[in-house]
Design a protein around this nucleic acid. Structure first.
Lengths: 152, 152
DNA sequence: CCCTGTCGTTGGTGACGCCAACGTTGGCCC
DNA sequence: GGGCCAACGTTGGCGTCACCAACGACAGGG
């Protein structure tokens, strides 16, 4: 069994953290390419999805849901508000807050993006069967939950 | 079962690509913190490891092994050569190439980093037992190999 | 000898994930 | 009511990673 030209060193191949990172890189490449078709980045999708599922919320609350930093949230909301996919309005009951709501156009765009993402996931998971996909999701979920609880 | 404050939207939670990315983020945070103890970044470790395992090689060859871009390789080699962990010498047989070799100090540093990384992996994989870890590594390897073959 | 390709290098780009600081505003406790 | 602390949006910045285009130097094949 020859060592191929591009084979990483054993030290790196045996590193679960690197394996995870390489898989994430592949996933992100595929997802980013899909979202780019719609002129959108991952942050945009995450924000639209959170906005749709939790209804009108403050930027800070949406940030907590999506893991997007408050400062990055500003720019992301700017982008989507400019395209009329989100609405940003001051909260009359708490003047510190902005109330972010998804628009009808935003919902349509979200549905469209869902379609693109479904294809992307299929691409990413292509080599795995249904049972393996469930196993993978389960294992990753346990890891992510553990590290979220540990210090989030 | 209440929905916690920081719970991501179902759309995001159900996305394998995002799950993978979140796991990779957790892994990278842990690994970066560990390597930072030694004043080192992931690129540095990858390059040292490749250099040790494959012996004297050109920068381009090491780049292919590690997945580091030729342009980023320059700076990474600069860093490590400056610390005398690597040696950079022109190849007399092909004047386009530099021959990169790991030094004795580099080997010692690599051993040290291996120790730090072992702890980090244990941290990252803490919630999983031995069998689960093997399963995870297997699934991720299949994904990574697939996407490397597909277009690498 | 020309052509093609590789090599190292420079310079630049973009997304992501962060952090610090500020002024504004709310809520709480004395 | 006054004081204090916490949360909010915003600005501005940072570092890493991953990538791309272009260049001059050089090697090798036709």
């Amino acid at each position: 069994m020859d060592i191929e030209e591009g084979t990483p060193p054993q030290r790196l191949r045996a590193l679960p953290s690197r394996l995870t990172n390489q898989a994430a890189l592949a996933a992100n490449r595929i997802v980013d390419r899909a979202l780019a078709e719609a002129g959108v980045r991952r942050y945009h999708y995450a924000l639209l999805a959170a906005s749709e599922e939790y209804g009108p919320s403050s930027q800070a609350a949406l940030g907590r849901r999506t893991g997007i930093d408050r400062s990055d949230m500003v720019a992301t909301v700017n982008d989507l508000a400019e395209r009329r996919l989100l609405d940003r309005a001051p909260d009359p009951e708490d003047r510190r807050r902005n109330i972010i709501s998804i628009t009808a156009a935003g919902r349509r765009e979200l549905t469209h993006l869902d379609g693109l993402l479904a294809v992307a996931q299929e691409d990413f998971l292509a080599p795995l069967g249904a049972a393996d996909r469930r196993t993978l999701a389960d294992l990753l979920t346990r890891l992510v939950d553990h590290h979220r609880a540990e210090q989030g």
